[in-house]
Design a binder for these strands. Structure first.
Lengths: 114, 114
DNA sequence: CTGAAACTTAACCATTGAGTTAAGTGTAAG
DNA sequence: CTTACACTTAACTCAATGGTTAAGTTTCAG
């Protein structure tokens, strides 16, 4: 049974399926420890909407929050992405094979034009 | 503007967020060209439910279907996953760094025990 | 030509998801 | 001590998902 990991993958992929959430993660990748309102500022939605996105990210284990006084800092936690990449990696041959084919073709052309 | 690719990533990640759909893709990875009903057989849900999953996968560009007589063959199309992996790759340093730290620790122990 | 097999479409239902506004809880500053 | 700031919770709306059953199509087989 790989059922537990399965549910984790569900949460990871579905957390990543939203552009706002991906943007939040991208922001934290460059600048970790931002507060909730700093994070929310660039987005054209209400603060509670961002709160819900942060909750989704926390549930997926992609985000942790630490409170200091009245400000809450958000920290990126990328580990769950490792399994997502692992899952995708299995399919990598489908596009690297395509690239190999292309390379072979280019190589053939290069030889041909001599 | 990377808005178009953004919508494609949305569709890719959200297609992958369902375990049934991941299982369908996994099946096609090992055995391409299966018919709709062959694909549906292992799952405890109705055929129309599977049809909907196949529609989601088609919309995400992960699946194509070719009809021959009354049977419809399904073909895996992994290319959209390349961008998904590309997106995730940016975060790879967060777990490889962790691994590097672990390796360094193990290396230190190995030296220490001499 | 008739019937069954392989899909598809339609209509419906329950749950979840993403957003809203409004009200509530601490904490810092004047 | 009061006010404003930073966040949270509650209650609601609306659309999308994932499933169902039932009723089509089209195609092959007898």
């Amino acid at each position: 049974m790989v059922k537990f990991q399965d549910a984790q993958l569900d949460r990871t992929f579905s957390a990543l399926a939203d552009p706002t959430r991906r943007a939040l993660l991208a922001r934290l990748e460059r600048e970790d420890g931002l507060s909730v309102s700093e994070l929310a500022k660039p987005f054209p939605v209400s603060l509670p909407a961002i709160m819900k996105h942060l909750d989704v990210l926390s549930d997926a284990g992609l985000l942790s929050r630490t409170k200091a006084g009245r400000i809450v800092s958000c920290h990126l936690n990328a580990e769950p992405m490792e399994d997502a990449m692992g899952w995708l990696a299995r399919y990598q041959r489908f596009w690297t094979e395509r690239l190999d084919a292309l390379e072979a073709l280019l190589e053939a052309r290069r030889i041909g034009e001599d």
